Simulated scan of single mutants.
Amino acid sequence: MSDGVFDNDSVPSEPVGGAGDGGFMAGIGKMRDSADRMIESAKTGGFRSSPEGVKPLIDACSRMIDRIEELRAIFSRLAQDPKLGSSPYALRVAKHDRQSADGPQGAVPQLLALRETLVALTEALYRASSQYAEADEAATMRGSARNDLMTARQGFSS
């Protein structure tokens, strides 16, 4: 007799929703590559804009970065196995759920990668508007974001 949702071995062993074939992370990677190309173009004068032209974009990126930072407290909770019981099947489901949160294709690494990409995009926008002091600040943030991403990945894999 079935006792509900956790009555068989139906937990998928591979990521679902396109995550295994790229999914959201592939999109973040493409976005990051574009931001890096924008930075290089802005450095050589190939991409320019007025400060007023990039301000709404910089503001939007800043709001998204701030929101991801606000979520960091939740990230640590997601890095814990959910308490679903001690049966072998419940432990498998808990492991699968945690992988959805902080595994290689999980929500946490994807959000941290998005943050790093938004910081790079902000740097490109500052450079394009010839606001080099702000661009240097964005580059510093970018280095910090990269360090945060590496630290988070190491913390989640241990």
Rank of each mutant, 00 (worst) to 15 (best):
A19K: 03
R92P: 03
M150I: 05
P56R: 08
A113W: 04
G155R: 07
S100E: 15
S130N: 10
A120H: 13
Y89N: 10
R63L: 10
K43H: 11
A73L: 02
P15A: 05
P51L: 09
R146A: 15
A138F: 05
A133H: 10
K95L: 07
R32S: 13
E137L: 09
T44D: 04
A120T: 12
A124N: 03
I58Q: 03
A60M: 13
G45K: 02
Q105L: 00
G27M: 03
R77F: 10
Q80Y: 04
G22E: 09
L125V: 11
A73T: 11
G17Q: 04
G23D: 06
G85K: 02
T151D: 11
P51M: 07
Y89H: 10
R48K: 10
D36M: 02
Q80F: 05
G20F: 02
V54W: 01
R72I: 10
S76I: 14
E69D: 15
V11N: 03
Q154L: 14
V54K: 00
S34N: 14
P15Q: 02
Y132T: 12
G18L: 06
S100K: 13
A19T: 06
A139M: 09
R127S: 09
K83N: 12
V119Q: 08
F6M: 08
I39P: 05
A128I: 09
E134N: 15
D3V: 14
D33I: 06
A73Q: 08
A128D: 08
P82G: 04
P88K: 01
D9A: 06
